[in-house]
Design a protein around this nucleic acid. Structure first.
Lengths: 220, 220
DNA sequence: CCTCAAGTTGAGGTACCCCTCCGGATATTT
DNA sequence: AAATATCCGGAGGGGTACCTCAACTTGAGG
């Protein structure tokens, strides 16, 4: 192993290639945002005024393109999360975290889909999902320990909430783009600790949750 | 207009035709239940061991076949609804109505899809949907007038709940087939009158609701 | 200006799906 | 047994999408 093997002279990308790369991302952002993760790659290529072969050269898999397109959303989400995590009041932190998540989710069907599917085999996406789960677990636990959130709910319940929100957004994004906020706050009432009623069903296990998300990626 | 115009000698269906008709319905039930309203008609024909042309002869449109396949579900739902509507206690009636609805919804993806889409132009389906909306409105109003359900929710909120449930079912039907009950009862806590918090968003109007459902049938 | 690695193109293979049409098969009636 | 309305099969036209690859083009270093 010589040093030249480790650093194989990475000549910079050609300018025209860079341009096409950028155009592809722009088109992909528009298309994924409007039609979700299953948007047509051929249409994205057409919109970007680029041949389909070029799309595949730059982004060998759909997931590669999706992640490139979603990058700003992930950043936006991440910044909002950070703010929410810094809030002192446990209940407010919990609420802010979810409001931020739902807001970003409502603005991008690609992100929306991305949230409720797991892509086994992609370390990148698994990492993102795992981090989100950890954060949700944190804000939830903190709200529970403060006695603000009911003690009998778990991460799985919040994930269900995210799925539900996703469906609402699919239905209402063009006709009632803020409808999700109402649903969220109705739900939050149920999550407050006082006056909680018993629930006739245990929460999903982590395994069930994971399987369900994987299923959303595969099942037609 | 002679009587012969009104009664144009309706010779009964041929026996072989009846058989194929029945096989098609069986296959359609299986397929719609498993894959939802957008199941492949060609696969249904293959499963029924019938040529695609024959399928179209018996059921000129997808909706014709869907309604025929869904008939037992609709009946099952209707019977459960009737029982719920007879319950004296307003809150229990409300809960029972939703539990019945969600249970049927959880058992059939075709019915699940059917619930959250409207098919403008089909008097049949519009009637079914309208009747359901009226019933929901009834049980809800009764629970509200009894002071059991919070006064600031509307039909649209329940429909959102149905959509949400639909998403949960898509995700969990194979991995946690009873998960919907938990989500429902969590939600019901939010719907109880006592200790309701203000919601930062008005309910959807009827028009918004209708548009959203129509959109689910068309938008990809 | 020349060279050539890097990049591009788009036809073409595969696989679905929807829906129509008409020659041929068949159950039923007479 | 013949007549015939009814019914059936399935090829075929039209569409969309995924992905590959061989032939061509071009930017950039020398």
């Amino acid at each position: 192993m010589s040093t030249s093997d480790i650093e194989p002279a990475p000549r910079p990308r050609r300018r025209d290639a860079q341009e096409r790369h950028d155009r592809l991302i722009v088109a992909a952002q528009r298309e994924f945002a409007a039609r979700g993760v299953d948007a047509s790659l051929e249409k994205i290529a057409r919109d970007a005024d680029v041949a389909i072969g070029t799309l595949y050269r730059h982004f060998p898999t759909r997931l590669d393109l999706l992640l490139a397109a979603l990058e700003p959303r992930l950043r936006e989400f991440s910044e909002g999360s950070k703010k929410a995590l810094e809030i002192d009041d446990p209940w407010q932190g919990f609420v802010s975290y979810l409001e931020n998540l739902f807001r970003v989710q409502a603005g991008d069907r690609g992100f929306n889909d991305f949230l409720s599917r797991r892509f086994p085999g992609s370390a990148d996406t698994e990492r993102i999902h795992d981090q989100m789960c950890r954060q949700i677990d944190d804000v939830l636990t903190r709200a529970q320990e403060a006695g603000e959130a009911r003690a009998d709910i778990t991460l799985a319940d919040i994930v269900n909430l995210i799925w539900s929100n996703g469906r609402m957004i699919d239905a209402t994004s063009t006709t009632a783009p803020n409808a999700w906020r109402r649903q969220l706050h109705l739900m939050l009432d149920a999550y407050r600790a006082q006056r909680a009623h018993p629930i006739p069903e245990p929460p999903m296990t982590e395994q069930q949750l994971y399987d369900a998300m994987v299923r959303l990626s595969t099942a037609g």
